[in-house]
Structure formats: structure tokens, C-alpha cells
Design a protein around this nucleic acid. Sequence first.
RNA 1: ACGGGUGUAGCUCAACUGGUAGAGUGGCGGUCUCCAAAACCGUAGGCUGUGGGUUCGAUUCCUACCACCCGUG
Length: 304
Amino acid sequence: MTAIQMTTDDRLLVVIAGPTAVGKTALSVFLAKHFNTEVISADSRQFYREMRIGTALPAEIELAEVKHHFIHHLSIHEAYNVSKFEAEALDVIGKLFKVHPVVFMAGGSGLYINAVCHGIDILPDPDPEIRSRLKKILTVSGISALQQELDRLDPQYALQVDRSNHARLMRAIEICLAAGMPYSALRTQKPVLRNFRTFKVGLELPRDLLYQRINDRVDEMMLAGLYEEALGLYPHRHLNALNTVGYKELFDHFEGLTSLDYAVEQIKVHSRRYAKRQLTWFKKDPEFTWFHPDDSDQIISAIG
RNA sequence: ACGGGUGUAGCUCAACUGGUAGAGUGGCGGUCUCCAAAACCGUAGGCUGUGGGUUCGAUUCCUACCACCCGUG
């Protein structure tokens, strides 16, 4: 490839994002080969080494062709979160920029991508002890108890949260308790400047085609042995990592709650909805330039 | 072929003794600062199988036809 001056301004992180099954992996492998560089994965479920088939991991060949980071670097038993990913990814990206002017980051986890591109406020990590306490309050006294607690601890944030979302309420309360100050005092939401540029590639397909690909891929996963993989992970079904499309539906089947056909159908439905949520997230980000996943030539010239 | 049953939103089903149709689910749209493939919110869909009849009024009653299901042959 052409020689590029390695000044800070020339360092470019190319983000490849889009809904599940749109073709992020294939494209990022192709582009990484073309630019002779490596790929950072921003996929919160491909982190876990115990989950393979259900997370549509890049194929062996693809992994052999291009070096990937943050794939299978965790066990489902480990606690992980965005800020850890932010720190670790920035570290790896920094090292890669010493050798490569262009680095790719591919994945579908919008929050994780944002954290790498623009940072995330420094907040207390999730605290299992506080969480189980809050969960108990929710079960015993209902969501209004959480709402009142947040009203008391952080009246300002209490006005803007989604009050019917217990997960948000609990997180906010958790922060207040762990930090000893209101969440809103810590929540700057100020983008952090990075020492590299970013170019965000959004991949999109017509909805019916995307859904067809999702449905087909679920069938392929089943043929590839998703059932057996999920069965093996069934004893660990309560771990957060396994609160994942493709596994939880099969767990329901193992519990005798649903038929296998229904479980597979639900995997498809949930994957489609997930894809929609991803699209909603990425579409809102004006930094994205949208392409068809086959438009590699256009994408290459856009990267420059 | 005969007897019985069912036909209501894309799907599964509701609607007291007739007062002109609702839920769940899916679809569509959105929210999002740390368990995020998570969690949550909002919406649009129906000449109630078809044609007659009774009635002020029919998803509801009568009738014919059509479709499907079960049983007997």
C-alpha cells in the first residue's frame, strides 16, 4: 500500500458498523487485508470464548487471514463493561497505530463503539452487591420504590430518566450510592478528543433482505450445532453473558417452556428486533456514512 | 357422503341473555453513558368467510353457499 506519513492526523480508525448479519465481518476482513492492517472487534458477545456458534464468530479462515482483537478474550464468568473495553481497546489501537496508519474496528455494539470514539464518563463500575439489593427492592416494593429512591438521591437525573426502565433507575441509584454524590454531577457526556481520526462506515441492506439473511443465518447456526453449544452452556444460563439472543431462547426450550421450533422462531424474531435497535442507534449518529456491504470499492475510495 | 364443530388484526384468541370489536404476539417507530445481542417506551392494523333474511341495530339469531377440522362411513 501507499506510504502514509504517520502524523497524528493521519492515523485513522475506520469503524464498520451496522445491524447483525449485514456483512460486517466479511467486509472488515476484506478491507483489513487490502490495507494490510488489523481489526478491533466491538461486539459485546464475541468477547466470550465459550460462545461461538451463536455469536456468528468470524470463520477460522477469516481469523487466520486478518488479526482480530477482542474476540474470545474473556470467559463468560468474567465481569466486563464498556469502560474496561474503552481502556483496553485504546491501548491496542495505540499500539497498532505505531505500525499501521489505518486500523479497523468492526462490530454491532453501539455503546462500545461510542466509548472508543468519544469516551465515556468515569463512573463507578457496576457493583453486584448494590445491584442485588436494588433488585430485591424492585421485587418486594416495585418500581415506584426505585423511582422514589432516585428522586431522593438525584432529583435532577430523576427528571430525565425513563422512569419505567428499572435497569436505568438501578444503575443511576447504584452510581449515587457508590460515588456518594448524585449521578448527574458525574454525568458530563462530554466527548473526549482522540489522537486519531475516525471514519464511520454504516452498512445497510433493504429490510426484507436483511431479515432474510438473519433468518437464514439462524438456520445455519442450528445446523452448525447451536443446540449442542447452548445445551453445554445451560448450567451457566444465569450469567449475564448468556442473556443473549440465540441462547436464552434455547434455554427456555431446555426448561420445557417452549418447543424447539418455537425457540428457533423466537431467535429469529429477537435477532430482527436487535437489528432494528442497532439501526436506530447508528442512524442517529450523523458521523456515519452509509454503504451497501458490497460497495467495497466505494468504501475504499471514501477511506482515501 | 352423513353427523358435529370452527371461520374475528399477519398469527393465537376475546367480546354477558343481539347495542356496531379488544388482548397477547408479530409488524412499524423511538429511547439509550457501563450486565447494552441488555433494559425500556410509543404506535398502526379488522366492510368480524361470502350472499341473503329477522331487527331500530347482528361478530352475536335464522338460512344458503364456501373453506378448514373432528367423528362415522
